[in-house]
Amino acid sequence: SKGEELFTGVVPILVELDGDVNGHKFSVSGEGEGDATYGKLTLKFICTTGKLPVPWPTLVTTLSYGVQCFSRYPDHMKQHDFFKSAMPEGYVQERTIFFKDDGNYKTRAEVKFEGDTLVNRIELKGIDFKEDGNILGHKLEYNYNSHNVYIMADKQKNGIKVNFKIRHNIEDGSVQLADHYQQNTPIGDGPVLLPDNHYLSTQSALSKDPNEKRDHMVLLEFVTAAGITHGMDELYK
């Protein structure tokens, strides 16, 4: 796709999030870079409003799984890469995230190029959380598991539907599940690639910047598309 050509090198990323969870309002600002050749993201996020009212790991899918245009699609799968094909005009990404036995996040993001920078601007609203639950009670460990993110075409809306389940580790050794339902639709009216069913395999590492006084998260992530085999004719070339 034409959009794919915008991702040949390292691309700067800007992320802006405004959130409200159970009436606790907050903002997060992030910057870093993405390299789609390797499916690599390096980002640093800062809570610009003081202390973040929710655990950082609960925002990873909104912040970095928010820029799935940096996923590495192998050559034989490039015609299934909706995310890059929607660029530079970008796409709207909407999600509902259900935390098992707790509340939910609803998010709406616009992901697009502004100049040479890929920008992810998000509004997040969280409701029905227990004040002493795993999320508002800050009981999650500061780490992140690997996940597969399942993608299918949504021809009606000229976009994709995505769903997956995140496993958050809790300090007591148990797990907090979070079910994600995602819809992506193009902002522009140019042609986009509608994929066959496949998935993104994601690995994320969270860390801290020892010199950063503000509440923050440093993230390194690798994302690769998989799940579609080479056609038989490919094998015999």
Rank of each mutant, 00 (worst) to 15 (best):
P53T: 02
K125N: 15
P195A: 07
L41Q: 01
V54M: 05
N143T: 12
E141D: 14
Q93H: 02
Q183P: 00
N169S: 09
L200P: 00
D116V: 07
F129Y: 03
I127V: 13
I170V: 13
S85T: 05
E123A: 08
G159C: 09
V21A: 02
Y142S: 06
G19D: 00
V111A: 04
D81N: 05
G188A: 02
H180L: 03
T62I: 02
S146G: 08
T229P: 12
A36P: 10
F164L: 05
M217R: 01
T62P: 03
I170T: 15
T48S: 06
K100Q: 14
S27I: 05
E5G: 12
H80L: 14
P53L: 03
K106M: 08
M77R: 05
C47R: 01
K139E: 06
H138P: 02
Y150N: 10
L136P: 01
H216L: 00
F70I: 06
D35A: 03
E5K: 13
N163D: 12
I228N: 08
I135V: 08
D154E: 06
F164C: 15
D101V: 01
P186L: 05
G9V: 03
G190C: 12
Y236F: 12
K112M: 06
N120Y: 02
K112N: 10
E4D: 09
K44T: 13
K2M: 07
N211S: 10
D18V: 12
I228D: 10
G23C: 01
D172N: 11
R214S: 03
I160G: 01
E141G: 09
E16G: 04
I127M: 14
Q68H: 05
G103S: 04
I170S: 15
H76R: 09
T37P: 10
L206R: 00
N145T: 14
R108P: 00
T229I: 07
H230Y: 15
V11A: 02
K84R: 02
F113I: 04
S201G: 06
K25M: 06
D154A: 13
K2Q: 14
V175G: 12
E89V: 08
T8S: 11
I13F: 02
C69S: 04
P53S: 01
